[in-house]
Design a protein around this nucleic acid. Structure first.
Length: 293
DNA sequence: GGAATCATGTGAT
DNA sequence: ATCACATGATTCC
């Protein structure tokens, strides 16, 4: 492999400015918004000022699934299937199954270290966090990293960079933030390219959060690609079966969207109950995983 | 079926 | 202390 191929080998074929996701986002939004009178592909295309065939092509290239198949992939029915089959025993078994080394995870090769309680209480004091915005398959991504590894990954829609940054920065109010797109670009290339999730070069991640939050996030990391669990599954997995609601709150504060797969947590009914970066994005990620499993 | 209600653990104020 | 939650089970219409 030559150096050039290494630089631009995106896992997902996206337009450089991320406008593909913007198109996809609006399609998903339109379909799910008024699913009662399921708009036809023609109607959606007309709304977006595109030809149906063009739209179909863009969408399929992005998701690996036709719009129709995609929609089926994010229905209740399908979600239940994700939960059902190996859903329940999954969390218990994957410990022995996938955890060959300390902190090495099943499907995503991530080494994670948690901050000590003292460091957590300092709210980022003395920590330098480098950040940068980059186009991603799911909109504009905000990457935050310390020299110990990736600390945050957030999504924003076009124009929403500022509130997005503030939302993230609030989590570690005492940290020192420096913009460094060059450094963070290195992360973004690997995060969305599955071929770079390997045992040889695991992604280094720092979990900054309370003890309870970290236990919840670690549990999330055990969910394989394209599978899903319920909030109560996670509660059981961390040994506090009645804390499903607290688990929901902790998942909601996950600073590492996508890397820590909080999108794979669903309500018991299979319904997508919430997502910090918008339900549409949760659908998009879930559907994309369905098309790339 | 769905609205209302309750038990519940955690973290922020 | 009190409050808001990305829950889930139960109990009413």
């Amino acid at each position: 492999m030559n150096a050039l191929a290494q630089i631009d080998a995106p896992a997902i074929d996206v337009t450089p400015d991320g406008s593909d996701y913007e198109t996809v986002r609006r399609v998903i939004e339109m379909i799910t918004l008024d699913y009662r009178d399921q708009p036809s592909l023609e109607a959606i295309a007309a709304e977006l000022d595109q030809s149906p065939t063009q739209l179909q092509k863009v969408f399929t290239r992005w998701a690996g699934l036709s719009p129709k198949a995609f929609l089926q992939a994010v229905t209740l029915d399908h979600a239940k299937r994700l939960l059902g089959k190996e859903g329940l025993p999954l969390l218990e078994t994957s410990y022995e199954l996938g955890l060959s080394g300390p902190g090495r995870l099943h499907d995503l090769f991530v080494t994670h270290e948690a901050m000590s309680p003292g460091e957590w209480k300092a709210r980022g004091e003395g920590l330098t966090i480098r950040y940068g915005f980059h186009p991603s398959p799911f909109g504009i991504a905000l990457v935050m990293a310390t020299d110990r590894g990736l600390a945050g990954l957030a999504f924003a829609d076009q124009g929403g960079e500022k509130p997005c940054f503030e939302d993230m920065a609030r989590r570690w109010p005492n940290a020192n933030f420096v913009e460094d797109r060059e450094d963070t670009a290195h992360y973004i290339r690997r995060i969305f390219d599955r071929s770079k999730w390997s045992a040889e070069q695991p992604l280094n991640v720092v979990l900054i959060g309370s003890d309870f939050q970290i236990r919840v996030w670690q549990s999330l990391l055990k969910i394989p690609f394209g599978k899903a669990v319920t909030y109560s599954d996670v509660a059981r997995d961390i040994g506090q079966p009645s804390a499903s609601r607290a688990v929901g709150a902790a998942i909601g504060r996950n600073p590492l969207s996508f890397v820590v797969p909080c999108h794979r947590a669903l309500g018991k009914s299979g319904a997508l109950t919430g997502y910090h970066w918008g339900l549409t994005r949760k659908r998009a990620i879930l559907g994309w995983e369905a098309g790339n499993a």
